[in-house]
């Protein structure tokens, strides 16, 4: 391990030395690549990034170092990458927030659709609608009825503006046409603690955060927000099965490079990403998290671009209607 690192650093020095000659795209990569994750280390997105980076490193023959640049709902890290040299040595792994921050933030330091090249989609983590274990409604239909008749009593938790749980909660409210009292937390950890501790009523969050609490019987689950049932939660109905149509939300993750990165390089990265997504270890870990790798067609620049563009348009009316902004 240590040796690999020394080799990597020496390689970095040599590559830096070769800068003036202009690093040719064919040789890419000749030094370690930095993958910026715009969230704190240890979170779900960081975990996805580290799993993929580890596998891609083996394919590319250079280490991909995960660099956590958290802050401002992920826009700080994204803006860092947008301003980096387009040489393929700085990448961004961001989730659905890439699309929603384009609407949540009225003044972003970068132009979401024009500041990046696309490498590909990585995975789409399903969401679950969960509640404290002694919450009265028995199923999703019951939950919707209960929420409508008791809207002055019910509390909906989320992990802060722009978080997955916030987005899903907004979508839920817009679907059932009610405004509920939301209780924001600083991150998923404290929100989940209070849900398990029965301080708040219900929440909609990623399987990465909820699966184990569900399996441990600490919280109640009503539905998943996917088209098909989630493999790790086979007994949980999808929202459509449970009576709420068109409620599909997933926290999709994509890899980006700064605008102007040569197409040969992004192609190489896409190929490495596709390979990583078939790596049995990555597949297995993703399955443990209750998610599946993106298909080969999705893990392409076009796949990601299509997703990003359509997601911005999808969330714009939801966020505008809720009237929440992060700045």
């Amino acid at each position: 391990m240590k040796n690999a690192r020394i080799v990597a650093v020496v390689a970095a020095l040599m590559a830096a030395a070769g800068f003036s000659g202009g690093a040719a795209a064919e040789d890419y990569p000749t030094r370690p690549i930095s993958m910026v994750v715009p969230f704190a280390a240890g979170g779900p997105t960081d975990t996805v990034a580290r799993l993929v980076a580890e596998s891609m490193s083996r394919d590319l023959g250079q280490q991909i170092l995960v660099e956590n640049v958290g802050g401002a709902g992920g826009t700080l890290g994204a803006s860092r990458v947008a301003k980096s040299d387009p040489d393929g040595y700085t990448l961004l792994l961001h989730h659905i927030g890439m699309a929603t921050s384009a609407v949540l933030y009225r003044k972003l330091p970068y132009d979401t659709l024009n500041a990046f090249e696309y490498v590909g989609l990585v995975t789409e983590v399903p969401m679950t609608i969960v509640a404290r274990s002694d919450f009265e409604p028995a199923d999703l239909k019951g939950l919707i009825d209960y929420v409508k008749t008791n809207k002055d009593k019910v509390t909906l938790a989320n992990a802060g503006v722009g978080a997955a749980s916030h987005l899903c909660g907004m979508l839920f409210m817009s679907k059932i046409g009610e405004q509920l009292t939301t209780v924001p937390y600083k991150g998923t950890g404290p929100a989940m603690t209070d849900l398990v501790g029965k301080q708040v009523d219900f929440m909609c969050d990623q399987t990465t955060n909820t699966t184990n609490q569900i399996k441990g019987g600490k919280i109640k689950v009503y539905a998943t927000t996917t088209k098909d049932r989630v493999a790790s939660l086979p007994d949980v109905p999808t929202a459509a099965e449970a009576g709420l149509q068109d409620f599909e939300v997933g926290i999709w993750h994509g890899v980006y490079a700064p605008k102007g990165t040569p197409p040969e390089i992004t192609a190489k990265l896409s190929a490495a990403l596709q390979k990583a997504l078939k790596d049995p270890l990555v597949v297995k870990r993703f399955a443990d998290l209750g998610t599946a790798p993106s298909t080969e067609a999705e893990a392409t620049p076009e796949g990601l671009k299509t997703k990003l563009t359509s997601e911005i348009e999808r969330w714009r009316p939801v966020i505008t209607a809720a009237g929440v902004y992060a700045d």
């Binding site: 975990t47 580290r50 609490q213 399996k215 441990g216 870990r285 443990d288």
Partner: peptide, 10 residues
Amino acid sequence: IIQGIQPGPN
């Protein structure tokens, strides 16, 4: 999680 262990009540 990276090690394949699901932290939780179990």
